[in-house]
Amino acid sequence: MNASALPVWPDKLFDTFKRAGIRQVGYVPDAGHARLIDRCRADPDMRDVVLTTEEEGVALAAGAWLGGERAALLMQSSGVGNCINMLSLPRTCRFPMLMLITMRGEWEEFNPWQEPMGSIVEPVLKLCEAEIYRARTPDEVEGLAERAVQQAFGDERIVALILSQELIGKKVWTK
């Protein structure tokens, strides 16, 4: 694949982070977020914090806001399940919580073990009182990300931007 064929939506997400003044980015690595993680790691004004489990990132973002910084949290759909109890922190205290979630277990998924969690991401987040946006095509990513940022930090809400598996592309299983 040549450079011009790389999707640009991860760069649009990065641009949105920069405009929003995101200073801390917590993540458990995921292939769908790889480009965005690389951009954040390369930016001297962003602190990239690799986590051992996604719930650490919920607590990190709460601490960042207590100290006056904005944080974002990147994860795969399976990580949503790891966050549930820790989301009581932003719910109880109204911390801004911006979550970007790459989906597995839906469109053309090869691995059936991804389906149980992938299939309940949205209802679980709704029960946690998150506002949910879902991007299915590249051209809607930036607008939805802007909206998610405004709502998270403006209204001090939990906001999840879900990036559909169809947007990210199929995981290639043969080497």
């Binding site: 200073r23 801390q24 914090v49 990190l60 601490g63 960042a64 207590l66 100290g67 910084e69």
Partner: peptide
């Protein structure tokens, strides 16, 4: 929480 706060 302490880490996020310390970095900020």
């Amino acid at each position: 929480i302490g880490l996020g706060l310390a970095l900020a």
